[in-house]
Amino acid sequence: MQLDKIQKREQLTGWMLTLPALLLLLLVFAYPIGQAFWLSLFTKNLATQLQPVYSGWNNYVRMVFDGRFWETMQNTTIFTCVSVFLELLLGMGIALVLNQSFPGRGIVRTIAILPWALPTALMALAWAWIFNDQYGVWNDILQRLGLIHTEINWLGEPSLAMMAAIAAEVWKTTPFISILLLAGLQSIPVELYEAHALDGANPWQSFWRITLPLLMPQILIALLFRFAQAFGVFDLVLVMTGGGPAGATETVSLYIYAMVMRYLDFGYGAALIVVTFLLLVAAVAIVSFLLSKARNSKF
């Protein structure tokens, strides 16, 4: 259909208003990803004196046999899945509590979003201090409670270090989930619960039949965001453990960063970025598919 004058005028204004933002987004988001795709087909490292030399799929072949890459992949997956799962449970609990009416609710709600707003790098330092083997308060508490008798080197043992990192991550990002879920809870009309109670349902049944289904979109959105963010975790682990001990907490992003900034292997770093990007896109696609299904089934 032919556009009329008003529409044409709108088009023009619309584009003029959108274009600056769009160009900046392309520069900062699209260009680096595109660049990584291109560079991943080249070898560019100290051996080539940092000049790009075309090498086809070499970087990807190298990745298949790169044990450290697979280890970091495994670490990242464990870190992501465990922390997102715990955050979801804890976030749901906190949202349910904050949805009650009690004196001082405003203050508690404020406190409950605090961890989310604070700089990750700084709070990673705080958590490293809490888990400090000699002077850490966590060891002190456990000893006073009589649960342990000698100090535990939380950040020095591979499996414990992962747990410590997950604890810090859960603390830092649970508020994000509880905010979303609380908003969802508040949007569920009380009448639904009242009607369900009149029908003879107990609270446990209402939770499963009303709260959870109606909260599904929020849960999936929270999962989507948190999954993507946790998969790219960087500052928290870098500051808390530096990827150690013995690479036990090295995540993909730390590996990528080291590959580029320490080993100056740009081509391989780019290939790592490409693979991480594609994995993320696949995961996001799956979750968004579930999300659209959950949304459609509501109507």
């Binding site: 987004l25 990584a36 993507a228 996001v284």
Partner: peptide, 23 residues
């Protein structure tokens, strides 16, 4: 445009830093 904007909110910055470093 909207879909694009939504997707990039999910990008971890680690994916961008190499390209941006070159910029």
């Amino acid at each position: 445009i909207l879909a694009g904007v939504l997707i990039v909110t999910l990008f971890p910055y680690i994916l961008l830093f190499l390209g941006l470093l070159q910029v």
